[in-house]
């Protein structure tokens, strides 16, 4: 199920404050949900934000999915000059493809036959969200945050990714001011593939570095 299929998706196109939300109806509300609704209404009443801005912002994040990052990776595979620009400045390279990745710099780290990269945020949950969407829960979990910097090979194996002993594993700890994305290796047997086809091989986890790009079927 994609994030778009979540309960109450249609609801976010309504106008104004939400007196009743399907996710609350289904499972009950918590004090923090009440707080969130109250804060939103206060900010709108005070004219600090508008209901339209809220809707636009939710829609912006809904539009950010791994497929966006996959397109960028596929172009880097297909176009060496673009790859060079991507490695120099992800935000600028993505802008060439009309993808606005915001003001926080994202650095691409390239997997090679000798080096495998993986990203984590030990302190919180920093993630290249404007390029590949919101992070999965496990990325924010205590287990992933704690162990990835100490025993990355073991963590990768838990994702079914075995990295050969002669391949160096580099772990990149993201911060509020610098995010990372992994540029996975292009799978063999894809030499004559175009970008659209290549993009289908770029799964989300391969851009986090816990897996490799999918093999061509």
């Amino acid at each position: 199920m994609s994030p778009h299929d979540g309960p109450g998706h249609d609801h976010e196109h309504d106008h104004g404050p939400h007196p009743y939300q399907p996710d609350i109806e289904d499972s009950g509300y918590t004090e923090r949900m009440v707080m969130a609704q109250a804060v939103e209404e206060l900010l709108i009443e005070k004219g600090i934000i508008t209901a339209d801005e809220m809707r636009a912002q939710v829609e912006l994040m809904d539009s950010r999915e791994p497929a966006l990052g996959a397109k960028v990776v596929a172009r880097a595979w297909a176009d060496p000059a673009f790859k060079q620009r991507l490695l120099e400045d992800v935000n600028k390279a993505a802008a060439e493809m009309d993808i606005d990745t915001g003001h926080i710099p994202i650095r691409a780290v390239e997997n090679t036959p000798d080096v495998h990269n993986v990203i984590v945020c030990t302190l919180c949950s920093c993630y290249p969200r404007l390029l590949i969407g919101l992070p999965p829960d496990w990325y924010k979990s205590r287990a992933y945050r704690s162990r990835t910097v100490r025993e990355p090979r073991v963590v990768l194996a838990e994702f079914g990714t075995e990295i050969a002993d002669d391949v160096e594993v580099r772990v990149h700890d993201s911060t509020a001011d610098l995010r990372y994305m992994v540029l996975p290796m292009r799978p063999a047997g894809t030499d004559d593939w175009d970008e659209d086809r290549l993009a289908e091989l770029v799964n989300r986890d391969s851009m986090i570095g816990v897996s490799l790009a999918s093999e061509p079927k």
Partner: peptide, 9 residues
């Protein structure tokens, strides 16, 4: 490997 469908709230 827990995924998450973000709730509206």
């Amino acid at each position: 490997p827990v995924e998450h469908d973000y709730a509206i709230w």
